[in-house]
Design a protein around this nucleic acid. Structure first.
Length: 266
DNA sequence: CGCAGCGCCTGAAGGC
DNA sequence: TGCCTTCAGGCGCTGC
């Protein structure tokens, strides 16, 4: 599941391949989530940016192509004329190469919008600060968490207190910060620990090229290596690396969750 | 406006 | 072996 580190890894690889190139033709799966890919036809690609888990491809006519990878989305750049692949949900032909969104489960989506106008994309429109940028602060996180009584993990997944955190890094950061994922309020000290944990976990994951559990691949088709550094996610039933207690596995607001019942006691 | 609950998707894995 | 069920889960939408 591509979260911030995975999308950032993709962004870095994609940018030099497409910047300055013109979209000669484009198309998408007939569903509304992908059909608007065609609207980028004729535009020239500017910079490739990222906000949270959203890939933002600037176009030269004050518009931008927004791509979300959902659960199983992959970005590929291939030579034209390759055999059909039934899972290509959107494509942009740039002449001697084709940019593709490959997405088995179709949880991803594509949109072409006026630059910075995200009213049609509610989550992006109300996205929290970038966790690896200057706007993400311990005090700001504490304040954001205090505005809600939603369980802290669920709140993180909403993308509002901070951008780009999904199930893997939520579990990792909460474990590192020693916060129970089901808590409905977080004190100032705990918020500061969570802030630090999020920055450390996400920064390390970017340096490791993302976490590949099953579907995630870089633009070049490689796997990340961060899966070898996970302390909590996917380790239910195994001993906590801090205290040795067997990690619990359960469901928090419908999301599979792993935590240490000792380090992260209520 | 906030938020809980539901539906979208399909391959993999497990049960019998 | 093969069929069936369950699971994975980000996010948009609906309705209270």
């Amino acid at each position: 599941m591509p979260e911030l580190p995975e999308v950032e890894t993709i962004r870095r690889q994609l940018a030099p391949l497409v910047v300055g190139r013109r979209v000669l033709d484009a198309g998408g799966h007939p569903s509304a989530k992908f059909a608007t890919a065609v609207e980028a036809t004729g535009s020239v690609v500017g910079s490739v940016r990222r906000r949270g888990k959203y890939l933002l491809v600037d176009l030269d006519d004050d518009r931008e192509l927004v791509i979300h990878l959902g659960m199983t989305g992959r970005i590929r750049v291939r030579e034209p004329g390759a055999p059909d692949d039934i899972y290509v949900r959107a494509w942009w032909d740039m002449g001697d190469q084709v940019l593709e969104l490959h997405d088995v489960r179709r949880f991803g989506r594509v949109a072409v919008v006026e630059r910075g106008c995200y009213s049609s994309l509610a989550t992006l429109d109300r996205l929290g600060p970038e966790p690896l940028g200057p706007d993400f602060t311990p005090a700001g996180l504490w304040e954001a968490l205090g505005r809600s009584h939603t369980r802290v993990k669920t709140h993180l997944l909403s993308q509002r207190p901070v951008a780009g955190v999904g199930n893997i890094y939520a579990d990792e950061a909460l474990w590192r910060a020693k916060i129970n994922p089901g808590r409905r309020s977080v004190g100032k000290d705990a918020a500061a620990r969570l802030h630090r944990a999020l920055v450390e976990v996400l920064d390390a994951a970017v340096r490791n090229g993302g976490t590949t559990l099953r579907d995630y691949r870089t633009v070049e088709g490689a796997t990340g290596t961060n899966q070898f550094h996970l302390e909590c996610y996917g380790r239910g039933g195994e001993p906590c690396h801090r205290c040795g207690t067997v990690l619990s596995r359960g469901v928090v607001d419908g999301r599979g969750t792993t935590w240490c019942p000792t380090c992260q006691a209520r």
